[in-house]
């Protein structure tokens, strides 16, 4: 293991000795963005995050109901890629595209575990760069649940959303003649009464936890609003306010 779940003392050690009170204050704001994925190190955690996301920029109340989010317990991922296959089968993803991908990182000099797997997908951002860039609202933020959706018939295929997305989450689907992307299985499952996404259901290691961030009883809410373990997002510097959260343990 490169990373063991950090205990409370260690978090404070890494995050520049902020007090318990400060930390609780910060968490109240909404989301603890406690690290940067780069290099696998948990960098300057909470105090820096306060500067990155000034108070109030993440709403205390989540703007959507349900506010669909996903927590990816990244150290649990075994790289079986059943999530990818489940996604492809459920959403008719062609062989030249992907909606979710499991990335692989090797650190030969690491002590213990030398390889880790990092699932990535559309982050369903609260401030999505793709939605802002689309000239014809072919991609939009669903007002009810916050999912970044596609209205295929409007897509002119300018591909600016592909360039705008910080997460490489979009591709042009020839069959649909429109951009395709993860919609948390809304079309294929959620809208048909299912409660979970295909990638989450097919994962044997409980890596992907899908749920409602606005519901304190939901597991996603509870995983994110806890003090023991750091939670982070990818590419926080773009200020896209993503809804895919990463944590270990």
């Amino acid at each position: 293991m490169i990373f063991k779940p950090l205990d409370k003392d260690k978090i404070f050690e890494k995050s520049g000795n902020i007090s318990e009170l400060d930390r609780r204050e910060f968490l109240k704001i909404g989301l603890a963005v406690t690290g940067i994925f780069a290099g696998g190190s948990i960098v300057s955690a909470v105090s820096a995050a306060e500067k990155l996301f000034p108070r109030g920029t993440y709403a205390e109340k989540y703007p959507y109901k349900p506010h669909y989010s996903m927590v990816i317990r990244v150290d649990q991922c075994i790289g079986c890629r059943r999530c990818e296959k489940g996604c492809v089968a459920t959403n008719a993803v062609p062989d030249y595209g992907w909606r979710t991908k499991v990335l692989e990182r090797e650190v030969p000099q690491a002590i213990g575990q030398k390889r880790e797997f990092i699932p990535v997908q559309c982050n369903q951002c609260n401030n999505p760069p793709c939605v802002r860039a689309c000239p014809v609202k072919a991609t939009y933020k669903d007002k009810a649940n916050g999912i970044v959706m596609m209205d295929n018939k409007k897509c002119i295929g300018c591909k600016i959303c592909m360039a705008a997305c910080p997460y490489n989450a979009r591709y042009f689907n020839e069959e649909k003649s429109a951009i395709d992307k993860c919609d948390f299985c809304f079309e294929s499952r959620l809208s048909r009464g299912e409660k979970n996404t295909a990638c989450s259901v097919t994962c044997p290691a409980d890596v992907r936890v899908f749920g409602d961030l606005s519901n304190p009883k939901d597991r996603v809410y509870q995983l994110i609003h806890q003090l023991q373990k750091p939670v982070w997002v990818l590419k926080q510097e773009t200020f896209a306010k993503p809804n895919i959260f990463y944590m270990k343990g």
């Binding site: 000239p135 014809v136 609202k137 409007k154």
Partner: peptide, 23 residues
Amino acid sequence: ELENPFRMAIYLFASPNFSSNIW
């Protein structure tokens, strides 16, 4: 270059996104 140039002619007017530079 556009994949669906004809849709542009319709939706640039029918569904404008004022925050988009391309619009």
